[in-house]
Design a protein around this nucleic acid. Sequence first.
RNA 1: GGGCGCAUAGCUCAGUUGGUUAGAGCGCGUGCUUCACACGCACGAGGUCGGGGGUUCGAGCCCCUCUGCGCCCACCA
Length: 815
Amino acid sequence: MLENPYDPKTIDAAAQELWERLGVHRFDAAGSAEVFAIDTPPPTVSGSLHIGHVFSYTQAECIARFQRMRGKNVFYPFGFDGNGLPTERLTEKEHGVLGRSLPRPEFVALCLATTRKYEAQFEALWRRLGVSADWSLTYSTIDERCLRISQRGFRDLFEKGEVYLKTSPTLWDTETQTAVAQAELEGKEKRTLFSDLRFDLVDGGSLTIATTRPELLAACVAVFVHPGDERHKALAGRHARVPLFGHEVPVKNDEKVDPAKGTGVVMCCTFGDKTDVEWYQKHGLPLRQAIAADGKMTEAAGPEAGLYANQARKAVLERLKAAGHLLASREIDHVVQTYERTGREIEFLPTRQWFVRVLDKKVDLIRLGEEVRWFPAHMGKRYKNWVEGLEWDWCISRQRFFGVPFPVWYCEGCEAVRVAEDQELPVDPTTRSPAGPCTACGGTRWRPERDVMDTWATSSETPQINARWGEPAGLPRSPLPMSLRPQAHDIIRTWAFYTIVKSWIHHRAVPWRDAMVSGHVQAPGKQKISKSKGNAPSDPNDLVNEHGADAVRYWALSATLGNDYVYSAEDLSRGRALGVKLWNAARLAQQHLKDFVPGRDEPAEPLDRFMRARLHATCRAVTDDLEAYEFGTAKGKVEQLFWNDLCDNYLELIKGRLHDARPERAQARRAAQAGLFDALSTIVRLLAPFVPHVCEAVWQDLFAAPLATPSVGRAPWPVAPEGWADPLAESQGATALALLTAVRRWRSEQKLSPGVPLAEATLEVGSALAPHVAAVEADVKAALRVGALAVRADPTLAPDALRLLSARALPSGPA
RNA sequence: GGGCGCAUAGCUCAGUUGGUUAGAGCGCGUGCUUCACACGCACGAGGUCGGGGGUUCGAGCCCCUCUGCGCCCACCA
């Protein structure tokens, strides 16, 4: 195979076929080796496969390969997140339908088809990139096992009293018409009118409130002032009449009023913002709902009924102006909370939802977060920061269609909640009734819960899904806690957080020991990649077609864990060049190892031992880096070992011996062969987690048979023996390199071709180099093509300095 | 306003516990078709490590401060 030119397409396909055939990446369910279990992120089936996916998945994948070579029994599943709103929206877009306008089964079927289609695309790309997942462990968050475990999770929460049903003002998206969670909010800066409105007091006089939401006047239920605000001391306890709508509302004191904002007088509506919700509950205010679930004004809004909130805002301002109640109006920029999936402003609607208790667990959740080892460490602070800032329990019910149903019915007689028994799972309560009558009232008529769960309610159970929590024995499963959670930093507040919440409630333990958190890919110029800007780099499939899987991996692994990374086509080229270089070095090795007998000879010459010393140092450093998930620096060190130490230096220095056919030099030649074999077989293994395809090709042709290891993917991770460390050989090597550089520089200055042999060169060297010249002279002379090397020590030079006094080229060849 | 991170060669980035002339790749200059490789080889140019102050015998690394950039959170009065 190595006779052919380097061709990633052929190499990639051959390596992937081999891995599949040998089952190199299979988890050994019966194995006794230590398990390394990876909680792979199940990507959302959102329709767009982009370079960001490749980036973070490759980084974790490299760790899987490393741990497998270290002898660990690697549990590396793949998962797909088909659940939820992203899939629904994609399906709606692709089919030009609206979920709520179709019969539910029909829409769910469409969603399933969409999911399958994109799952296949994702899997194809991951396989092409050489992702070493055990595909037999694959799950999809909408398959039966995930449904069952997700519902089992809910049952556990219910039995432990950690989930509750509550009717209260809830974060609501008016486009998708569902409740959402705090973690799904996104602040957006918007320009709006900030208006001063005159309210007349019932007993005479007036007050002025400032608001950005005049359309909520119809929902105004109170007016608040700060108790310490001297300007408004006389207001509290009196009543004001709401302009246009005429109802009377009390004026009350509350510490939460900021006297410095607006006029220091604020109206409370049900509901404009979170403070309104708090005041509504704290002061026992009545409910006046002016906005409906679809974002349109209700009948309570009078003439504005049926308008969207932003339309109503303009209309109300017009009417206020006409009525003389609009005193002032100015434009301000302020941040409003929107739903991240639709970009629409969040409303607060009183609805009945299921909540998971999290606010009462902040202390435990922070402590648990501290038990996890975060890489890089500062990502742990982001988690802590989020937990500390929590203000709502986790709302897990969604008024949507495609998702895991709640395994819940309500008794028509007494409203008792019935949760399905474990053996009934998975269950769709809309198609089945519970067994037996209501235990509370004996009723037999049930109303199913029609909501589905938040996507995160299922994906937060990925450790349990991988562990087949509560499932019958027999199938391969992960231990808990898992070893590693790889993910990107933008979902610390969701995926990482919710997973820790569930793990705490279910098991009182961390879900995984380590979390490696990757950064984001940025477009050239450090721009955020966005569809609207159209600055996304090429489709990953095109990149693999063009440069090969190893080059794409190389790029992703050039980053530092946790840091954002700018996409660069140049790095892809460099990755490809590395493949070419390794391919060619292997060809050279193959040529010189034809008559090599492994294990017969030691790489005993000084420069052979020098190469071993370099291998020793690099193996240790690279292993430490990878243990700490520092794949970028690890890759750099291996690359330097390969390109500089091996190719540029060692190979050049032993070529003379490798070509020397004289019988008296046979021993020296065999030592060079042994050195070459050691070096290349070690380096190929060190490179394998990064660029596995070309490494596998080289391994097959050179090392699989002699080392009796059928795939580099299962080759033992190189741990260079202590004996390879060799300070003397390092000094000798340094001397050889100094001599090489000096003569090369002279050649360059003389503008001589390196091919022109030199008759002789005379040098002076410092005291640190002088003792080692003799040991390396033969190899150096051969590498430099110099006939005679006259070297003398000069005590006046710095110890490691060197000076070339003269050199003489041979007369050019016989013309 | 709160939290976190980043600021090192033209570009993209490394710099381990503070220690001699600060590194890499790309790009750039010069020379080379040298029997593995021109996706290559050799040699070279290029940085007052964002500004200021401090600790230290010594700071790119530690402390303070300022500036710029990014992300997260809060801010719907």
